[in-house]
């Protein structure tokens, strides 16, 4: 694949005991593009995400992240929270993981933890309430307000995250990930459980994140209408290996992809074939 990849996954392996969840998977995600990772249930998509974001240590292979300034980072060596803190990769979860007992605004403030820790002089300056800290906090609140506004949750800013409707929680989780100011945003099935209108709104949100923030997006999605409409590039996995990749149209017409989906679940295969027609 040509171009300027931000993320390069090279022969990634992930074994769990005897199970090979990801088997020598290689693909690249272009900078400022939306790359979709699709595949039937149990194909290993979430496992790939967990490797990229440091929740799993890969059994083999390399994951390289190339920043705009040319620095590259080996994510598989970074591990844990440093992937978000230093490599600036943010993620959301397949089953939403907000802080339910904190308000929407607080959720977004927690996301700015590292920047705020620096501004608060590792807490000491903040404890004294120095003006520089108060300004930094105000800026953080403004950033949170901006993102709440963009995901349409400004009026719910002071409500507990656990009290929000399902679709609102999904969007809040995306806003929270964006508050870490990532260069790569990994979304695990963001449209799951959304109705048609909400998923349309999600498409617009993701496109605006790509266009305005210039954030590259890696997307796992079952909802083919989302995949076909917004992704620039699609990678298809089955049983831990890549079976196809290319533009949404090319992938949709690929017989191997249709076969994989037919083998897994007939309804999904039909969804793949019917979408876009």
């Amino acid at each position: 694949m040509s171009g300027d990849p931000i993320l390069t996954v090279d022969r990634l392996m992930m074994r769990f005991g005897g199970i090979v969840a990801v088997n020598a998977l290689s693909f690249a995600a272009e900078r400022r593009k939306i790359t979709a990772l699709i595949g039937p249930n149990g194909a290993g998509k979430t496992t790939v995400f967990n490797c990229i974001t440091g929740f799993y240590r890969p059994s083999g292979g390399a994951i390289r992240l190339a920043h705009d300034d040319g620095r590259t980072m080996q994510l598989e060596r970074l591990g844990d929270f440093r992937i978000t803190k230093q490599a600036k990769v943010a993620r959301t979860f397949q089953n939403i993981r907000l802080f339910p007992g904190m308000t929407a605004l607080e959720n977004l403030m927690v996301a700015q933890h590292n920047a705020l820790m620096r501004a608060s002089g590792l807490t000491l300056l903040g404890l004294l309430g120095l003006p520089s800290w108060r300004e930094a906090e105000q800026r953080a609140i403004e950033l949170a307000r901006t993102w709440l506004d963009r995901v349409g949750l400004l009026s719910r800013a002071d409500d507990a995250a656990g009290n929000l409707a399902y679709g609102d929680q999904r969007r809040l989780e995306i806003a929270r990930a964006m508050c870490t100011e990532p260069v790569l945003l990994c979304l695990d099935e963001p449209a799951a459980g959304l109705n048609a209108r909400e998923s349309g709104g999600l498409n617009e949100l993701l496109l605006s994140i790509r266009n305005e923030q210039g954030t590259s997006i890696l997307l796992i999605e079952h909802d083919m209408s989302v995949v076909m409409e917004i992704s620039d590039h699609v990678v298809v996995m089955d049983y831990g290996v890549k079976i196809a990749e290319g533009s949404p149209q090319a992938v949709r017409d690929d017989p191997k992809v249709i076969a994989a989906y037919l083998g897994a679940d007939e309804e999904e295969a039909i969804a793949v074939m019917e979408s876009g027609t």
Binding site: F81, G129, R176
Partner: peptide, 29 residues
């Protein structure tokens, strides 16, 4: 009371709420 309103205090509470999410936000748990 002051610590609660500082990033460290918020991180404590976030930790109580969901440790995995904290890690995903770059917080050193």
């Amino acid at each position: 009371i002051r610590l609660r309103r500082l990033p460290i205090g918020r991180a404590w509470e976030a930790l109580r709420e969901d440790e995995v999410a904290c890690r995903a936000l770059g917080i050193n748990v």
